[in-house]
Write a protein that binds this DNA or RNA. Structure first.
Lengths: 189, 189
DNA sequence: GTTAGCATGTAAGGAGTTACATGATTTC
DNA sequence: GAAATCATGTAACTCCTTACATGCTAAC
């Protein structure tokens, strides 16, 4: 994971659909993309400035009278070209970091309950995530009847569904294994 | 994902089991940990130097006559204390970046076959990974009969198994959806 | 002899996070 | 009047990757 600044393409991809401010980009990204690629303001604003300088986006001040001043960005032809170029290049392999697995891997140093608690918290967290994804899925299925525009969004939602389910199934399996080892350790009274 | 340098704890965790050189650490980490947290030499050697300075590990030159010179590192009591402290702290949420999902998400800009090819490559890659994980699992199950020492390793392997299976099932589902859209687009001849 | 693997490191740079700073507006 | 939200940005810092540099040993 390096070399090509991915933030650039998330911004270009979103702007290809509609004109947005930096703030809007963050909201859109949080809503639709964050589950597989998070970005923060600290990346968005500097990247927008860089993109403008390179002529891949243009900036104008929003004419809305109410509310604070907004900078609206639009993608240029050059920007669209660069986005398309990126879309045709094979992606790098995915990049995952699971601190929980590290802490479990070295788990023999702490009481088993510590590891079990960890997995429980993980389960709770991802039960919530799965619920959200199922809501998404339902909403998308309803609108997809009208136009197939949301197909690619739907495919990423399906990914989340599979992953969160895998998380939960693993958590139960792992808890059961830990339970068994504990039972073996203590004699029946 | 920041603040606590995780490389530190991977190194301490491995050294807690046995004395190792930087090179050994890389090999062990590649073998057992890389599927959920990768580290490189560029992190290992500087971190070892820092840990030595802080008194969490000690360094000695290996006495083996043959082969190039090796620096062997051992964990200290302070190091073990720091490792245990870390193990008791709740982990941060997992950190995933899937470039493939980004390229699919913005996929309406390129021909559908482009997206399908992408998913195919993803499938091939992870079919291999799943094969490797199943081999691991078989080996571990054999040795776990003797001692339960490998339980935590086994639990991380189970995680990999679930995830890779989820990847493959999603890939098939996504390919089927793409196929259907293409079929709708063209009239039967 | 030459390639592959063992072994240790440094330097440069890019990516990403966190904290800080500022101020307007809207809602309760 | 206070709190939440809208909105833009900067600075410092850490993490991580990549490329480079070096040299020995074992196998083919």
């Amino acid at each position: 994971m390096a070399k090509e600044n991915t933030t650039v393409y998330i911004i270009l991809g979103l702007l290809n659909h509609e004109d947005l401010s930096g703030y809007d980009i963050k909201k859109r990204a949080d809503y639709m993309i964050a589950s597989f690629w998070e970005i923060g303001y600290g990346q968005i604003y500097p990247t927008l400035a860089k993109l403008e300088q390179e002529g891949l986006v243009t900036k104008r001040v929003s004419e809305e009278s109410k509310g604070p001043e907004r900078n609206l960005y639009s993608i240029t032809e050059a920007g669209r070209g660069e986005l398309t170029r990126w879309l045709k290049v094979p992606e790098q392999k995915e990049y995952t970091k699971y601190e929980i697995l590290l802490k479990l891997f070295f788990g023999s140093l702490v009481p088993v309950e510590e590891s079990a608690k960890r997995i429980d918290a993980f389960k709770t967290r991802h039960t919530e995530n799965l619920k959200m994804i199922e809501m998404f899925k339902g909403n998308l299925q309803r609108v997809m009847g009208e136009d197939q525009d949301h197909l690619f969004f739907y495919i990423t939602v399906l990914f989340g569904e599979r992953i969160y389910n895998a998380y939960l199934e693993w958590a139960d399996e792992a808890l059961k294994l830990l339970q068994e080892t504990q039972d073996e350790g203590q004699e029946p009274s």
